[in-house]
């Protein structure tokens, strides 16, 4: 990667000229670039050809229940997209099975196929056990 205006002329040194041949070190860098391109394209093609053409599907799992104050608990829920397509605005809703009141809601902006995100839901009353909760995904948007 020579350039002809690098100031070497002013310092008395001979200007660098590589002629028409690329230095071996640059060929090594070019090899790395070619390898990156091959790996990138291969991964994308394999993923593109093997990804199932299914709609998004969701699994919910309570990972943590913590008491915030005397009357409020925070339930952390992992939301996994086990389907074959991404989803946006995934709306997660949960309510206590012993409480007919309004549900708690949280939204995940984007959930790619095979990915996972965590949301937090607040519940009032005594500390709930995971079995006391009815959790579900009530809707999403196709990207």
């Amino acid at each position: 990667m020579s350039d002809d205006l690098d100031g070497d002329d002013q310092s008395g040194r001979d200007p660098v000229s590589f002629g028409s041949s690329t230095p071996p070190a640059e060929w090594a860098m070019a090899g790395v670039g070619a390898l990156l391109a091959i790996v990138l394209v291969t991964v994308l093609v394999v993923v593109g050809l093997t990804t199932r053409r299914e709609p998004p599907g969701f699994e919910l799992r309570v990972t943590e229940v913590s008491v915030v104050d005397a009357d409020t608990s925070l339930v952390r829920v992992d939301v996994s997209n086990v389907g074959g397509a991404p989803a946006e605005a995934v709306l997660v809703e949960g309510h206590r099975t012993d409480d007919p009141g309004p549900p708690s809601r949280a939204e995940v902006d984007h959930l790619s196929a095979g990915s996972m995100a965590s949301v937090g839901l607040f519940f009032t009353g005594p500390r709930p056990e995971p079995d006391d909760l009815d959790l579900r995904v009530v809707g999403f948007r196709h990207p």
């Binding site: 590589f18 690329t22 860098m29 670039g33 990156l36």
Partner: peptide, 25 residues
């Protein structure tokens, strides 16, 4: 490109392009 184009052949330009791609990644 980032080299003086005079006297360079297609193989040299391909090398430069691959270096540019690698640096871009």
């Amino acid at each position: 490109g980032f080299r003086d184009g005079k006297g360079l052949g297609l193989a040299d330009h391909v090398a430069d392009a691959l270096v540019a791609f690698g640096i871009g990644v």
